[in-house]
Design a binder for these strands. Sequence first.
DNA 1: AATCGATTGAAACGCTTGTTTGATTTCCTC
DNA 2: GAGGAAATCAAACAAGCGTTTCAATCGATT
Lengths: 227, 227
Amino acid sequence: MPDSAAESRDPRERILLAAGREFAERGYEAATVRDICTAAGANVAAVNYYFGDKHRLYIESVKHAHEARLRQVPQPEWAPGTPAAQKLRDFVGSMLDRMLGGDQPPWQVRLMMRELLQPTEACRELVEDYIRPHFGILLGVLDELTGSALPESEVRRLGLSIIGQCFLYRAAGDVVAMLVPGGEIDAYHTPQAIADHVTRFTLAAIGVAAPFARPGLGTVSALESPR
Amino acid sequence: MPDSAAESRDPRERILLAAGREFAERGYEAATVRDICTAAGANVAAVNYYFGDKHRLYIESVKHAHEARLRQVPQPEWAPGTPAAQKLRDFVGSMLDRMLGGDQPPWQVRLMMRELLQPTEACRELVEDYIRPHFGILLGVLDELTGSALPESEVRRLGLSIIGQCFLYRAAGDVVAMLVPGGEIDAYHTPQAIADHVTRFTLAAIGVAAPFARPGLGTVSALESPR
DNA sequence: AATCGATTGAAACGCTTGTTTGATTTCCTC
DNA sequence: GAGGAAATCAAACAAGCGTTTCAATCGATT
């Protein structure tokens, strides 16, 4: 058990940890206060004693997971002069590592993913404290990469394109695994390999790296870029 | 009520419909047999009479939604000679329309999305009958677009990049709306606008359309495409 | 050692859940 | 129109849920 060593002597902390894992695995409705308390080695009454009710326990456990995650995965920082393309690769790599990394994705990510997919009250806080700053960094890199030639709205769409590519593997990873032949999933769909692909794809779209295929099909003018 | 006109006189059908909506909205655990039956105008016992238990009702309702969706959104077909770039735009557009389209996304899509994000038994069937064929069409278009110059594994990754970009708006739409300034979400993030962006982004990455920004920053060689 | 608030514990509460029952109604067949 | 299977209904069931209760225990302070 990866986290059990860090299991605090403080019962409040223990419950928070067990709750996070349980909520992440089963979802809010299916997770039961009794199971959480059993896993935490606490009495059922402890939840109401420390948190009031199940709902507030949920909110707290999301915040707790989020803070723990922020602590162990600091935002990327670069030495001045680092090429923007390198920054992009680093950013995508660390995002994918955070999402898919390690042996299996930690329960904190699962829990946060649930919030993103079906937001509750805890979501806004999550976005403001965790998502938006990261997104801001990405936008900065993209702005640098495009030589500040694009309007902000366009840069944002580029950013969402990048995040979307990574997000798919995390949110719908099981389906992706079904769509890709068995052997390939290990060889071509590691966090590293995906990061390489997403980076290359994006740099090519921006025009900083070579495109995937050379034109010359005669279809170039068939669809002008909108506007 | 959009579907109420199609509400069959057959109670089995009515329950299936109400169940789909309820499961889509609340999820399996939170949806209750009583609510479903009330919405369907049926007695609680009807569920067990027609389906045995809640779990089998769920399976059936997923299949039912999936079949209904297949019926109303046929796979795209193109006249011979249609430019591949146009096909890509059509494909992306129809996928986004299916995901986000209409006034609000239909409950069938929500239900299927739940299956994708946290697969149950119904998922494999869903992938084989619904997702994989569509994915195959996309791969065909991409293969055509790249002049069959890329290995299949590479084409698949391109396909996943495209789907990921669209998927984000559907699965994490609420978060996207938080990250984008209020006015912009209506102007730049309609299904049409997103389709245009994703298509342009992809075509640029492949090298069939102009990149988003001209190079010349001196960072081109900073990160060669992997391998 | 006594005191008192903070914490824990076993048990029960009230409610909702999925499911079953058995009587009643409906609808078709002969 | 009588007979009988199919379908519907109100009511109840047992089990599980979140929550509460209140007595027992702990731990620091006096």
